[in-house]
């Protein structure tokens, strides 16, 4: 059984080292050839991954940082820590929303003050822990949702026996994680916890356009946008999660606003998308040192 679980395991702490090296190297311009690797956004990606991919894209686009979006079915296996999305910069990788924002924040002109940072950190943590756990539960643990949406999507790029086995393995792992780390026990709990999260976010946002500043956006805005959009567009039959967001109209309007802002920051020449749909003929990822 162990060898089957191997792709999900940690093999090195490359990512953490990368971030440290970058921080110590000081203030640098945004590199040219940056590739953002994500799973297939239309057919493969599951709820929480979709949220994080959307958030990362929104963050980079809002700040005008150019990148090439690379959709490939094996993105999860490329990431050393199995975190998504994966940012490839020349020779090294940065994985996960938090690491990417830490990396990018050093290259943005407008820095947050330490007070502003400590004001948004509780909300970032809330989304990364409670909202994320609720999404994991809704998508992976609930039987109806798992069978009708998550399992077919997650297994879609693989041939027959694998497309049944891999979702089940992933589900076992996520169940084990949730039983230890969250008090969620049913879909009612999920709805309740998501509802109080949404309420807190809505109260915090109030009538203002963005969370911290009236003009500028930061990673909290990106993260909230990613998770709310994923919830609003989710097709999970059980739980009725979309309705939870629709209860708070200012959050829905906030999403539309960020959508517009994101498109303004987008330069069509800089943002190209490559999509690889077949698992069989994957183009290799070329590192700079190989060229």
């Amino acid at each position: 059984m162990e060898f089957l679980l191997k792709p999900f395991m940690f093999t090195s702490d490359l990512v953490e080292d990368t971030v440290e090296v970058v921080i110590s190297s000081g203030d640098l311009p945004w590199p040219q050839n940056v590739i953002l690797c994500v799973p297939l956004l239309s057919s493969q990606v599951t709820l929480h991954e979709q949220a994080e991919c959307l958030a990362t894209q929104a963050f980079l686009r809002m700040h005008g940082l150019n990148f090439t979006l690379d959709e490939r079915p094996n993105a999860e296996y490329m990431s050393v820590t199995a975190k998504l999305p994966l940012l490839k910069i020349d020779d090294h990788f940065v994985a996960g929303f938090d690491a990417i924002t830490t990396y990018a924040r050093l290259r943005i002109r407008k820095q947050l003050t330490s007070e502003q940072e400590s004001a948004i950190r509780p909300y970032v943590e809330m989304i990364n822990v409670t909202v994320r756990n609720a999404e994991l539960y809704a998508a992976w643990v609930d039987d109806t949702n798992f069978r009708s949406v998550t399992a077919p999507r997650y297994g879609s790029p693989y041939p027959f026996p694998l497309n049944k086995i891999l979702p089940l393995l992933k589900r076992v792992q996520i169940k084990a994680f949730l039983t230890e780390n969250s008090p969620l026990a049913s879909m009612d709990d999920v709805r309740e916890s998501l509802n109080s999260d949404m309420k807190a976010l809505s109260e915090r946002l109030g009538p203002r356009p963005y969370f911290l500043d009236d003009l500028n956006t930061n990673e909290l805005d990106a993260l909230v946008y990613g998770h709310l959009t994923a919830l609003l567009t989710s097709k999970l039959p059980e739980g009725n999660l979309t309705e939870l967001v629709h209860r708070h109209q200012n959050l829905v309007q906030f999403c539309q606003r960020v959508d517009r802002k994101k498109e303004m920051g987008m330069n069509s020449e800089l943002h190209t998308t490559t999509v690889v749909t077949s698992m069989r003929r994957l183009p290799p990822v070329v590192l700079k040192s190989d060229v």
Partner: peptide, 23 residues
């Protein structure tokens, strides 16, 4: 101890407890 070795995305090996501590 089992709980420390779990993250949402992957299971860490024993050697990674150090990394866990740091984080």
């Amino acid at each position: 101890l089992n709980r420390f070795m779990m993250t949402p995305d992957a299971q860490i090996s024993e050697a990674k407890v150090k990394l866990f501590r740091k984080q």
